[in-house]
Simulated assay, not measured.
Amino acid sequence: MSDLKKPVPLPFGYTFLSGAIAGCTELLLLYPLDVVKTRQQLHTGKGGVGMMATFRSIVATEGASRLYRGIVPPLMLEAPKRAVKFGANGYWGNLITSNGQRKNTQLLATLTGCAAGATESVVVTPFELVKIRLQDKSSTFAGPLDVIRHSLKTSGPLGLYQGMESTFWRHFWWNGGYFGAIFWVKSLLPKPERGEILNNLAAGTVGGFVGTSLNTPFDVVKTRIQLKGTGEWAYPALFKIAKQEGFSGLYKGFAPKVLRLAPGGGVLLLVVEALSTVFRNYLGPPYI
């Protein structure tokens, strides 16, 4: 197929909408697992409370609605976050492969994902900070605006970017693992005659698992730094936690996190690809 016959990329508005719908769908379905994950990560000391015990404790002592506390910031973030994720991945992919003139490889797909994650981290840091401070068990904030006012009052405008460096590494490794694994899985699966629903679901799920396995230690560090507003750096903080709480301390909250982001990664890719196909058919040539 010549370059002239290749479908052109979708306009930004359609990519934005696809990512927004996919992200909001995944978030609304699986957000309670994120609350449970945060509670486990904030538990210091060796050992910890199991996922189901944490879940039951929240419902019994705080009510089921607490499982959706702090959802407003990430829900507001989903549209720009997913647009940045997939938009940046496309941008860096075109740059690294010289607009397709250089064949994409496993290494390039992973590097592209890492670059997309680094870009995404700039957008998500303030929203993550607000979400973490609302999800904390001892939180007394009335809502997102209360967190923002407090942060601006105590730390100034840059206070909303506390934990930026650890957030950078969290998204750098997750996106590298996610998009790298998607490339790898798709290269192993036979191309179906009709649609790629199962391929996309499988590739996205594996990608979500790999990304979560790589970035959970940085997520633990980020969560604690953003809650306390400390100026710690990610890698020294990793060694500190490992020394004080053992290696398992770096993976606190892994079970609910992976149960959300493995199938969540599959849902995300599935919805994005499905909507992209709908939009391409609606727009017709040269997008098909």
Rank of each mutant, 00 (worst) to 15 (best):
K6W: 11
P9E: 13
P9G: 12
P11R: 02
F16W: 14
A20V: 04
I21H: 11
C24I: 15
T25D: 01
L27K: 10
L27Y: 14
P32A: 05
V35M: 05
V36C: 00
Q40I: 00
T44H: 05
G47Q: 11
V49D: 10
G50A: 13
M51Q: 09
T54D: 01
F55I: 01
I58P: 07
V59Y: 05
A60P: 00
T61P: 00
T61C: 02
G63Q: 05
A64V: 15
R66L: 02
V72R: 09
P74E: 07
L77M: 10
P80T: 04
A83H: 06
Y91T: 06
Y91I: 10
W92V: 02
G93W: 00
T97F: 07
T97L: 09
T105V: 13
T110H: 04
G113D: 10
T119N: 07
V123D: 02
T125D: 05
P126H: 00
F127E: 02
L129W: 01
I132P: 02
I132M: 05
K137E: 15
S139C: 10
T140M: 14
A142I: 01
A142P: 00
R149S: 13
T154H: 15
Y161H: 10
Q162L: 14
Q162A: 13
G163F: 10
G163M: 11
M164G: 07
T167L: 04
T167W: 02
F168S: 06
W173S: 14
F179M: 08
F179S: 04
G180R: 04
G180I: 10
F183L: 08
L189Y: 12
P190T: 04
E193Y: 08
I197D: 06
N199K: 12
G204S: 13
S213Q: 10
F218S: 00
V220D: 04
V221Y: 00
R224I: 11
Q226Y: 07
K228N: 11
T230R: 11
T230G: 04
P236R: 13
L238A: 01
L238I: 07
I241F: 01
A242N: 03
F247K: 11
L250H: 02
Y251F: 14
Y251L: 07
Y251G: 06
R260G: 06
V271Q: 10
A274E: 13
F279Y: 14
P285L: 10
Y287E: 04
